[in-house]
Every structure is written in C-alpha cells, then in structure tokens.
Lab assay of single mutants.
Amino acid sequence: MASQGTKRSYEQMETDGERQNATEIRASVGKMIDGIGRFYIQMCTELKLSDYEGRLIQNSLTIERMVLSAFDERRNKYLEEHPSAGKDPKKTGGPIYKRVDRKWMRELVLYDKEEIRRIWRQANNGDDATAGLTHMMIWHSNLNDTTYQRTRALVRTGMDPRMCSLMQGSTLPRRSGAAGAAVKGVGTMVMELIRMIKRGINDRNFWRGENGRKTRSAYERMCNILKGKFQTAAQRAMMDQVRESRNPGNAEIEDLIFLARSALILRGSVAHKSCLPACVYGPAVASGYDFEKEGYSLVGIDPFKLLQNSQVYSLIRPNENPAHKSQLVWMACNSAAFEDLRVLSFIRGTKVSPRGKLSTRGVQIASNENMDAMESSTLELRSRYWAIRTRSGGNTNQQRASAGQISVQPAFSVQRNLPFDKPTIMAAFTGNTEGRTSDMRAEIIRMMEGAKPEEMSFQGRGVFELSDERAANPIVPSFDMSNEGSYFFGDNAEEYDN
C-alpha cells in the first residue's frame, strides 16, 4: 500500500510504541512475548500442572481467558453494579484439565481477579502490559475465525453469508486497541457500523446529549479505520460520505453494504499476525530463551520457528480426527482463516481442507461434555516452508469459486491468482447506482469489472525454506488448481455463540 510509510507498523501498534527502528520493534515485541511466557509459567505453578498438562491447549485457553477477564475493567465495573446470582464479580476462573488415573478430569478453578492481575503485572515488570493482553485477544479471535462461520451475524446486519472472507476479527472485544483495529476485516468494521446506525434509528437519543457526542466521535473513528483499509480513492470518498452524514440511517447502511461487497474484489488491507497460545510461549521462556534479547516478529519467520520446536497437546472428542484438529489450530496460529487453501497447503506441506470436510468441533470443551471418553493427542503445528504475512489485500483475480465463501483475504505475501467468483459478486451490483453516491458507485463498479483474471497478485513473492531466515531465496510455489480455494466452501461450520 502506498501510504505504508505514514502508518505505524503493526509491531508498533502491538507494543504501543512511538516510531521505533526494526531492532527496537523486535525487542519490544519480544518483551511482550516474554511477559506472556513468564505469566503462563507462574500460572502453571499456581495450578500445580504437570509439564504435559501445561502444554494442553484447553488449559492455555482457560488461563488466557482468566487474565483477560481480570483486566476487563468495563465488564468488571458492570458486574459490580449489576450483581447477578451466583456470579462473584471479583473472581474469575474456568475449567482446568488434569490427568488422573490414566483419565482426563475437569476441575473448575476460581481465583481472585486481583490475584491474577498481581501475577500478570509481576510477570511483566510491574506494568499492565496491555500489548500482551491484546495479543491474547487476537489469538482467540484468530481461533474463532478458523472455527466458526459468522453466517447468522452477517444475515442479521443485512449482509450476504458468502462475504465471510471479510469477517476477520469479528469476535475481537471493543477494547483491543490499535492492534485489534489493524486485524479487523472490512466486513467486521461494516458490521460494527451498521449495528451502531441501527441503534440510532431505533433509539432517538442515541446521537443526542453528552453521551451522543461520545457516540458520534466513536462512529467517526470507526469510519476512519474502515476508510484506511480501502485502497481505492472511490471507496475512500464513499467512506467520507458515510462519516460526514448528519443523521446516519438506511442510506448509510446501503452504502456500507455496497462497500463491503466491493471489497470482495477491490480488497481492503487487513493486517495478519501470528499470535500463538500462551502454552507455546511459556515452555520456550522456561527453556531459557530470551525473546527480548533475541527479538521477535509476528509477521516473519519467528512464529514458524517457534511452532517448529513446540509440543502442544489437545483434548480430542471420541469421533474427532486429531489431524483435522491440528489443521484448525495451525490455521489459527498463522492467522489464515480466509487465505486461499492452495497457498496454505503449499506452505504447510500437507493438504489443507475446507472447514466442512474437517471432523472436528471447536477447541474448547463445553462444561456439560462427558470427560470419560476424552483422549488427548499432539497437535501437528509444523510447516514445510515459511512466508511473510501481508497486510495488503493483493490485486484481484477471477477463479472458480464456491457456493460458500466467494473470495479470499490473503494472509501471506505469496504470488498467486486470487480466487473470487466474479459473476456471483457482480450480480449483486445491478441497477442500484442512484442517489448521492452514484458517481462513486459507478466508478467502483467500473474498477471491479476491469479486474483481470490473468493478473498475478504479489508478483514474484515466494515462500522460503525454514533454514532461509533472511528470506534470501524465494520459492514461487505451484498450486494444484483442481483443489478448492475457499475454506468455508459450501460450508456447515458451527455458528459462533458468545
């Protein structure tokens, strides 16, 4: 993207840094990872977990959730003011799984939030270390993106479920800051804005008074975040219109849905970061690795190297396929839920299948599930090659597409044709070009129609051997075009429920 120079890199967003050079960025990201790792080690000690239990991804998720809940100030305040039966607002906890007599047992633990905050700050040299908290939120978000298709949420806001490739980060909490905003897809931002506008339509006082002023500035800020994701002048001009509207209503909703559809071809720039579970960072720190000293990046080879040398386990339900569970977590670790499966298959070195073909449910185990038949197995999170994460949407291309997802959002900077089903997408653009945004709409449609099938995206960008740390010898991959490109292809993934 041309304006790259004016933006802070995501590592800076990730670490609240002012302008830093590459070495400083690597050190501050490393410091953040160190903090998460030290916190995780301490929690495993508190909970008396064995090494194996500490490497269980379900335990990692519970521990991450506990610290996120302990620092969720708004919710904590709300819980104190609106006490609900049987919930102690000062405590947080969740299921911890232990191996007892050759069987997995679930144990519900409860801790004072104050105590968890103390352990977290102690692991982070006394700081609140917001960057580390956001990092864990993005890992949870990436896992949700890989596990669930947001059909219901899309339909509720009037969008087409086939636009799911635009929904990265749709389950990120509001408090995820600049680093969170960077990884949100165009569809996620559109959905947040539509929800806001709908509230304004239904509630006369939404934009009024002292609160209304705050609401208005939040609305304009979200519009600017979305505008910054678009790469064409016409899309940005249309966002200006939406932002400046005196009284946002149905016309703005129409414009936003139009823009979301246009992003299936004229893709937005959305950041991709490899955020790993805390149970990967903990053992690495415990083994003596100093992330701050060595430096770390979320968008280069580092996460690949770390996963190459990590042992992570997962509980497996009786009829689940461990290899499929591994694929789910591998995609989440690489922030690749909406990437082209052919690119992923090449990088991973084994075939990556669409969601609907995987015999696996989510990673988390519900409290009512029976533990008797639970097994555990090693997650295979290694890769054959590594590639640089991208934040450009890439230019655009036609490809055989599917009944489910009709476009992709690249996660890796790797040369390819970008699949999208042009006739299906263009069919949504018939007729409606009147109104105050008509010239911009016409211009956007013209650009979409001009998108050429034979153009290559990320020209000359390749993948790298894991021994090639400096990215000196790019390998331009070859793809098996007979395979499906979309992950949520004609899909039956479970729906995400809060």
Results as ranks from 00 to 15, higher is better:
G180K: 10
P410F: 01
S314Q: 05
I347R: 03
D203A: 07
K98L: 13
R152C: 01
K293S: 14
R99Y: 12
N142R: 03
R261V: 04
I201Y: 00
R102V: 01
F488L: 08
L418G: 00
L298M: 12
S335Y: 07
G228H: 06
E484V: 15
D497E: 03
A123F: 04
E64V: 12
S467K: 15
I365P: 01
R382S: 04
A27G: 05
E210H: 02
N498S: 10
R106P: 04
Y52S: 12
T23P: 01
G212M: 13
G394K: 03
L264T: 12
I197M: 13
Y289N: 10
N144C: 13
A70D: 12
Y496Q: 01
R121S: 14
I138A: 08
I201N: 11
T437D: 15
R19P: 05
M456E: 00
A123P: 05
T360Q: 04
V280M: 15
N309R: 15
D340R: 02
G30M: 07
D203G: 04
M331T: 07
Q241C: 03
Y10S: 04
A471R: 00
Q12D: 08
D160C: 13
R342W: 07
S326H: 11
R38E: 05
L133D: 13
G460Q: 06
Q405F: 05
R246S: 08
R106C: 06
E114N: 13
G200S: 08
A123N: 04
G126Q: 13
L133R: 10
G450H: 10
M222Y: 15
G187V: 11
N417Q: 13
A451V: 07
M440I: 06
S367Q: 09
F230E: 13
R8G: 04
R162A: 08
M13H: 01
A85G: 13
S407A: 14
M331W: 04
K214L: 06
D127M: 06
M167G: 09
G132I: 14
E495W: 11
I25Q: 15
K198R: 08
I63N: 02
G17W: 02
F230P: 02
A387P: 03
R55E: 06
F429E: 01
Q58V: 07
A70I: 07
M238H: 11
R389S: 05
R317P: 06
G393T: 02
E73W: 08
A387M: 02
R461E: 09
L264P: 08
G126R: 12
R389Y: 03
N473R: 15
M1R: 11
V329H: 01
R342A: 14
L315F: 10
E443N: 15
R470E: 00
S326Q: 07
M426P: 02
D160E: 14
I33F: 08
Q122H: 14
D112P: 08
T130M: 13
V312H: 00
L47E: 05
S176I: 06
E252C: 07
R162C: 05
S486C: 09
N202Q: 12
Q311A: 05
R38S: 11
S50D: 05
S438W: 07
D480F: 12
Q311F: 01
R19N: 03
A366M: 08
G249N: 07
V343C: 08
M189P: 01
T15N: 09
V270M: 07
Q409T: 15
N205G: 12
